[in-house]
């Protein structure tokens, strides 16, 4: 059996008297798209935040390639090759595509200009951005200097996915990537997700959109009441099954409903 790329064992996170994560387990296998679904308040965003370093769990451990890791901040997780596309996209509208791709990890010029005058290597960053966008089939972007605010919702999502794919060497986490998009734009983003997967990077996809989840996911992690209820194979279960599991209307065969 292959070892998970990213796993969590017995994660606990409490906000005051509310337990958002209750000894939660999580496994992400190499090269797969794992969807995480769950009702609102089930704790899936806390789980994702713990995995991406935005939240520090009170207990349990996170293992990356079998080795325990601790993320004090999103930058820590990023340093380990875990990239997250947030639902808000985390982009600065007034800055260019290249500026946004490299935000927080800019490339400086070599030599005196870079070391003493801290001059950015614009050309290198622009070429890299262009190459990454082209890889994901977003070559239609003609002007890399374009500010992000001039892009449509789908294009912005595309740039955000490209940023994550470019730097996420281990894991890419996508939080509701299609929630704000139209049907056609969603389609394009789903293609992008599969494109990223085809390059061997495993993806965690958080989504409320069952058709999208069932279309692209290899496995579906159903989150309920702060922990993993079950992991189902989308080919063996229907969407109705998944929804009834996550709402508690029915219980999967091999699981005893807690509480």
């Amino acid at each position: 059996m292959t070892r998970p790329v990213l796993e969590a064992r017995g994660l606990v996170k409490r906000y005051g008297r509310v337990t958002a994560l209750d000894h939660c387990d999580f496994d992400l296998m190499p090269g797969e798209i794992l969807a995480v679904i769950g009702d609102n308040g089930a704790g899936k965003s806390t789980l994702i935040k713990a995995l991406s370093g935005a939240v520090q769990p009170n207990g349990g451990e996170i293992l990356l390639d079998g080795k325990p890791v601790q993320f004090a901040s999103p930058n820590d997780a990023r340093a380990h090759g875990i990239e997250t596309v947030y639902q808000t996209l985390a982009m600065s509208p007034a800055l260019s595509i290249a500026d946004n791709m490299f935000m927080g990890r800019e490339i400086r010029q070599s030599g005196v200009m870079g070391r003493v005058f801290r001059r950015l290597d614009r050309r290198a960053m622009e070429e890299f951005s262009r190459a990454k966008l082209a890889e994901l089939g977003l070559m239609t972007i003609q002007n890399i200097h374009q500010t992000v605010e001039t892009l449509s919702g789908g294009q912005r999502q595309g740039v955000a996915v490209a940023r994550a794919a470019a730097f996420g060497s281990r894991v890419v986490i996508l939080d509701e990537p299609t929630a704000a998009l139209g049907v056609k734009e969603s389609r394009r983003v789903l293609d992008l997700i599969q494109e990223v997967r085809s390059r061997g990077i495993p993806i965690i996809l958080i989504s409320h959109n069952m058709p999208h989840v069932f279309e692209v996911a290899d496995r579906v992690h159903v989150h309920r009441l702060g922990k993993r209820l079950c992991v189902i194979n989308p080919k063996e279960h229907s969407m109705a099954d998944a929804v009834s599991y996550m709402t508690g209307a029915s219980v999967p065969d091999n699981v005893a409903e807690p509480a």
């Binding site: 935005a54 999103p74 930058n75 990023r78 997250t84 947030y86 808000t88 996209l89 985390a90 982009m91 600065s92 509208p93 946004n100 935000m103 927080g104 990890r105």
Partner: peptide, 9 residues
């Protein structure tokens, strides 16, 4: 956008 900048690193 301070939030976005923070999340972007």
């Amino acid at each position: 956008d301070p939030e976005a900048a923070q999340l972007a690193g």
